[in-house]
Design a protein around this nucleic acid. Structure first.
Length: 961
RNA sequence: GCCGGAAUGGCGGAAUUGGUAUACGCGCACGACUCAAAAUCGUGUUCCUUUUUGGAAUGAGGGUUCGAUUCCCUCUUCCGGCACCA
């Protein structure tokens, strides 16, 4: 018997699979379809990394198993070849991007083939191929003709390193996600796609598909829907002018003490007062020079008074209009009503510029009762700075809303000053008199509770005070009879206070007093709001919008954080945008029959950095004639972003060589939507969102048959380096998959190791040692099949063998259905371990061995395709194991006859008995009593309760005295 | 700050609707084979105590239950995403 040598096995079958057409002779028409999609790679010079291998291995396992189950599986692969890294590489190495791409693709191709992925290479696509991008351009023109592609001069995110504009999604923490360069703002005329028109659809569509919840959540989050209202504020002395603000909290409108607008706001010039002119113009200049990151430095909000006033429509109050760069022009209306009392940002701004703070909502706790004692009250927190302790009253065990640990509290006497009241209560309850006021709240906290002292339901409007104890001097406490002996005074360490305080209102007051005074941002009770007083803020919110809408001063509005997709790039290596600019006819679509607009061959494709693409220098390409009027005209010189070709690539796989349409309707109808899409989490708000948008639009145009492109989407986790950090070139901890294969482990062991490591969707460190484990596992199977061939075989019957195999078939099938790949492999390992035990006993003399080993080989085929094919041949089978059918199991061989009943005493396992499935409680009890230990519990104690779970356990509750 | 996810042996990780926690693999220890090593095969391996027995343990604390890794509440830490979004 030869040793398992992956090199020999894998090269042999790689050759055979290339020459043999594996799928010839299959009647696909009779099979149900299954589209297994993994993200196609960007063919960088680096070649494949572990993440690619994980993704494509998982897809391959599913594709192969589904094929064996009788599906017509489409498992395609291609190259997403346009993009900046190739262009940068080409410039650096003085080759054309086209040549660089060809070279990189050849490298990738070889690597993919080494790993034994069952891609249908006849459908290979390349997004930079004119035969492909012809259709990317064609699809773009559909957007253009539907009015969803438009040009606008906007301040775009500009990457000074890549010298191109970027989409919002490509900016991470103010940096370009590809090169990590700080992004600047630049005013450019850009093409945009109206993805915002699909914001709601993109949210709603998620309900029809099966995405990993965190993928759907991330998309919803990114789209960022918020409900609110737009409210008009008139401008003083300009009767026809008004500023519209967007707010999600119209209920706080009585607290609006100023209005703020973005420096880019279009009404700004009409607002500047003569005195403020130079100051305001200076500020605007400064603000525009700032990058986004500088503006987001919220340590210091800045602004300037415009010189004008607005009128609050709810109460006709005049409020100042400020210009502030914390207001973003591209969200809402670029203007807000400033409510410092109830918005932390406005609060910070108002503090800095001494703008009035008006509380109109007060926090409220507990439920109002029918008969409740209503009163004004104080809560006093007394702190001992030296000892870091806080004074608390312990009212005994907390029951319902009474008792527990509280601060000092008490009712306000008629006409009494609030702070005086707090001092009086402290003296009365604890005796302390030497106190320094440190902080006090400017609003009430409403509390509904039950009072021990007066023995009834109370509703208190509480004002909070924070005192510092200056010395320990005390007077005698002076308690009334209701309070005497009901509480004890305790000094509590400051770090324990929040844990101990039992009443939510007291806790709120404590936190508000100790933190820097903050805005009240939650819901609460309306105050200082005229007729809306005493209402719930959420109710008032709706009423106020309704009332203002009636007067034509407001309307309900839903805003999305999502911005339109900036679709222009100022680079060479991308799809030319197929538009011709004509002086007379404006932007005109290149006629469909003239597509593709091919990229001209260039000698220099360096980005210009001027905001124009290098194509603009190719005058004989740029100069053309208008398709409408025939007059001289110029071509659009911007190219499409990297994400264009991948927005529809899955559709091209259905019909890759069609030169009449992007895909024929027949093929689209047959394949429909992708059944399972596996990809990286990093593309959830980029590629995944973009392609869903394209697909939804194509569906609306009647060009595709399904409303959503992907029926299910999962994301695989990242493989970290063995030290738990991200693999990166700079750290030098990258694991090269090809080196692993060549070091003697082979592709099969690598595929198994990466799959067995952890659940597929979990980020997990790579462990080189696990490779030894999976290699040994394959070797054990190899040995077993080899020895079996050497043996003569026999005619014993082994039910054990039949059972082990049947159970494994069931387990592996079920795990694969749940994408639980790692446990499926554990099941296969378990199976091999058990076969070794059986083998040791019967020395291959059982008649079922041939069948058992064949079945095992089928089960490992999706995971380790090379060795499976080799062993399939060694077991004297015709054809490919990958065309054999997935094994099935019989329930009668999976079901056990006997099972273990666990005997529990008071919830603890004290014994177990092995009895037939379906045994009665009486049988189990009888058997259990044979165990002297159990019997001793039985006799010596009184049995309170017996719980019997069929086929599982008998649990006894006994009284132990 | 907001939205997700996670926490189990020395390590990666298992555990149906709540029902024997630690499957499978790695590592480690011991043994067999060998002149020896590698490879392979076998045995053991949560911790504490112990002769058996027994006790404790799934990030921390509480709750529901005969019984909780699993359900509920509070908290801690880590990871991912978003973030001046009004």
């Amino acid at each position: 018997m030869k040793r398992y040598n992956p090199q020999l096995v894998e090269s042999k079958w790689r050759k055979n699979w290339q020459t043999a057409d594996l799928y010839k002779g299959i009647d696909f028409a009779k099979r149900p379809k299954y589209v297994m999609l993994t993200e196609f790679p960007y063919p960088s010079g680096e070649g494949m990394h572990m993440g690619h291998i994980r993704e494509y291995t998982l897809g391959d396992i599913i594709a192969r198993q589904k094929r064996m189950e009788g599906f017509n599986v489409l498992y395609p692969m291609g190259y997403d070849a346009f993009g900046l890294p190739t262009e940068n590489y080409a410039i650096k190495n003085k080759v054309s991007p086209e040549v660089a791409t060809q070279k990189n693709i050849a490298n990738f191709q070889e690597q993919l083939e080494r790993l034994g992925f069952s891609f249908d290479w006849s459908r290979r696509i390349n997004t930079s191929d004119p035969a492909y991008y012809r259709w990317t351009q064609w699809l773009f023109l559909r957007f253009f003709q539907a009015g969803l592609a438009y040009q606008q001069e906007i301040a775009v995110n500009w990457c000074p390193f890549c010298k191109t504009g970027l989409a919002n999604e490509e900016v991470i923490n103010g940096r370009h996600e590809r090169c990590d360069t700080l992004v600047e703002k630049k005013l450019l005329k850009q093409w945009l796609l109206r993805i915002t028109d699909y914001a709601q659809r993109l949210i709603d569509g998620l309900e029809q598909v099966d995405y990993l919840p965190r993928i759907a959540d991330q998309q919803i989050n990114w789209i960022g829907k918020s409900k609110g209202a737009e409210i008009k504020f008139k401008i003083v002395n300009q009767p026809d002018q008004f500023i519209e603000v967007f707010t999600t909290r119209p209920d706080t409108i009585y607290g609006a003490t100023y209005l703020a607008i973005a420096p880019e706001h279009n009404l700004i010039n009409s607002l500047i007062g003569p005195k403020q002119k130079s100051q305001v113009e200076n500020y605007i200049k400064q603000a525009q020079a700032k990058s986004d990151i500088q503006r987001q430095d919220n340590q210091s909000k800045t602004g300037v008074f415009s010189g004008s006033y607005a009128i609050n429509p709810i109460n006709n109050q005049q409020i100042p209009i400020w210009i502030a760069d914390y207001i973003l022009m591209n969200y809402g209306t670029g203007a807000i009503m400033g409510v410092p009392a109830h918005d932390q940002r406005d609060f910070d701004f108002a503090k800095k510029y001494q703008i009035a703070i008006q509380y109109v909502i007060e926090p409220s706790f507990g439920q109002a009762q029918e008969k409740q004692l209503e009163r004004e009250a104080i809560v006093a927190v007394v702190i001992n700075r030296q000892k870091q302790q806080v004074l608390m009253l312990n009212w005994g065990a907390r029951q319902h809303s009474s008792g527990g640990q509280l601060f000092i509290g008490g009712g306000v006497e008629p006409g009494e000053d609030l702070q005086a009241c707090a001092r009086r209560e402290i003296a009365q309850e604890c005796g302390y008199t030497n106190l320094k006021i440190i902080n006090q709240l400017d609003y009430n906290v409403h509390n509904h509770y039950y009072s021990n002292v007066v023995d009834q339901n109370c509703y208190a409007k509480i004002r909070g005070f924070l005192f510092e104890l200056t010395d320990d001097n005390k007077v005698d406490p002076n308690l009334d009879s209701g309070e005497k002996n009901k509480f004890s005074i305790e000094w509590v360490n400051i770090q324990d206070v929040e844990k101990l305080v039992s009443d939510p209102a007291h806790k709120y007051i404590y936190q508000a007093l100790l933190s820097e005074q903050k805005a009240v941002v939650g819901e609460g009770i309306m105050v200082n709001s005229s007729k809306y007083d005493r209402l719930n803020s959420s109710q008032a919110r709706e009423l106020i919008v309704k009332d203002l809408t009636k007067q034509g001063l407001a309307r309900e509005k839903i805003n999305y954080r999502l911005r339109d997709w900036i679709f222009s790039r100022q680079h060479y290596w991308g799809e030319p945008i197929p538009i011709i600019h004509c002086k007379k006819d404006g932007a005109v679509a290149v006629p469909d029959q003239d597509l593709p607009v091919e990229l001209p061959k260039l000698d220099h494709y360096q980005p210009t950095g001027t905001g124009e693409s290098p194509l603009s220098a190719v005058t004989d390409w740029v100069n053309t004639t208008c398709p409408k009027c025939g007059q001289p005209a110029k071509r659009e010189t911007d190219t499409m972003p990297n994400w264009a070709g991948s927005s529809w690539y899955y559709l091209r796989y259905f019909d890759p060589n069609n030169n009449k349409m992007f895909a024929s309707r027949d093929k689209l109808d047959y394949w429909g939507a992708v059944d399972l899409y596996l990809g990286g989490m990093e593309h959830v708000t980029l590629h995944l969102l973009y392609s869903r948008f394209w697909h939804q639009f194509l569906f609306d145009q009647g060009l595709v048959p399904t409303p959503e492109p992907y029926l299910a989407r999962r994301g695989q986790g990242i493989i970290l380096a063995a030290d738990g950090t991200k693999m990166s070139k700079s750290k030098g901890n990258i694991v090269n998959p090809l080196e692993i294969i060549d070091s003697g482990y082979g592709a099969d062991a690598l595929r198994l190791a990466i799959t067995f490591l952890a659940p597929y969707d979990q980020t997990t460190p790579w462990s080189p040692e696990s490779l030894g484990g999976t290699f040994r596992f394959l070797q054990r199977i190899w040995t077993m099949v080899g020895e079996f061939n050497a043996a003569d075989g026999g005619n014993q019957e082994s039910e054990e063998l039949v059972r082990v195999i049947n159970k494994t078939v069931k387990r592996v099938s079920k795990d694969l259905l749940n994408l639980s790949f790692n446990t499926a492999i554990a099941g296969l390992m378990d199976c091999v371990n058990q076969l070794y035990l059986i083998k040791a006993k019967d020395r291959y003399q059982s008649v079922q061995w041939q069948w058992a080993l064949e079945t095992l080989v089928k089960l490992i085929a999706p995971f380790a395709p090379y060795i499976a094919e080799e062993l399939w041949e060694q077991l004297a089978n015709q054809g490919s194991v990958h065309l054999s059918s997935w094994p099935t199991y019989q329930e009668k061989y999976v079901a056990e006859e006997k099972t273990v009943f666990v005997i529990q005493i008071n919830g603890k396992v004290r014994g177990q008995v092995r009895l037939a499935i379906g045994s009665s409680q009486a049988d189990v009890e009888k058997e259990a009593l044979k165990d002297p230990k159990i019997a001793s519990y039985w006799q010596a104690n009184k049995i309170v309760k017996k719980i019997f779970v069929p086929d599982k356990l008998l649990s006894l509750v006994i009284k132990s005295e």
